[in-house]
């Protein structure tokens, strides 16, 4: 990725970008929350979007998945243009998974049914196949024994791991994580981050909005720093953290400039 401080693209986008965000503008009423955001994410990238509260990072992620409409610009994920009309919504959903800050498990369904529901309804898998996949993803997040529990019987960290498993079961190309550890205490955060790190090692394309700076620095290979609705600074993690180009980013990571 290559951007100047205002988030304008310096280089032409790479051909193999699975996520392309171009000049996206988003208003909440009069408030401009995204002000010309562009970025590319390549397959296998783990991109951490960081920034202060209100910088527009969560909104950007939600726009990527069509949960918010955009007023200008264009977002293409896995070849599907996001937003505007419902026609390709199903294609987008097949390729993009999302995990939320508040887990959003279905409280009236068991862990197993939380996972198998979309497999049977959307992917038309047989019951046995869905069941097998549920076992597999739950095992992957270390919760194989919680199959028949209800969400309220699990800790926050466990719920979030189930939410990751639920998304993972649909084998998406890209996974979006919206501040998934913000509601958890440090102890539980660790177990969720470990699952995410495993995913990243497995080659999953991941975009996460996060406040876990140490985690972002260690695991993400690309970092995007957002400020005032713009991509203020972006690039490979090590480069960005070792030599911040803008005073805002330097201040944010606390090195001072």
């Amino acid at each position: 990725m290559a951007f100047d401080a205002n988030g304008a693209v310096l280089a032409e986008p790479q051909g193999d970008a699975v996520v392309k965000v171009r000049d996206v503008v988003k208003f909440f009423g009069q408030l401009k929350v995204l002000d010309g955001v562009s970025l590319d994410v390549k397959a296998g990238d783990m991109v951490a979007i960081i920034g202060r509260s209100g910088s527009g990072k969560s909104t950007l992620l939600r726009c990527m998945n069509g949960l918010e409409d955009i007023q200008e610009g264009k977002i293409v994920i896995c070849g599907h243009e996001v937003g505007y009309g419902q026609s390709n919504r199903a294609d987008l959903r097949r390729d993009v998974g999302m995990v939320f800050q508040s887990y959003n498990l279905f409280p009236h369904l068991t862990v197993q049914r939380n996972i198998t529901l979309a497999l049977t309804l959307v992917k038309k898998k047989s019951k046995a196949e869905a069941q097998r996949l549920a076992e597999q993803v739950l095992d992957q997040v270390g919760l194989a024994d919680k199959m028949l529990s209800y969400p309220e019987q699990l800790s926050g960290g466990q719920q979030q791991r189930v939410a990751i498993a639920r998304s993972l079961a649909l084998s998406p190309q890209v996974m979006l994580f919206d501040e998934v550890t913000s509601a958890l205490d440090p102890e539980l955060t660790v177990e969720v981050l470990r699952v995410m790190e495993d995913l990243a090692k497995g080659g999953m394309t991941m975009i996460l909005v996060t406040h876990e700076m140490a985690f972002a620095q260690r695991v993400a290979n690309q970092v995007v720093f957002m400020h005032k609705g713009k991509v203020w600074e972006a690039g490979p993690t090590r480069e960005l953290f070792s030599s911040p180009k803008t005073s805002e980013f330097a201040q944010f990571i606390g090195t001072g400039l």
Binding site: A90, G97, N104
Partner: peptide, 13 residues
Amino acid sequence: RTQWEASDCLGLN
């Protein structure tokens, strides 16, 4: 509303 969003993101119509 998050229940709508979560189920939407899983592809439910």
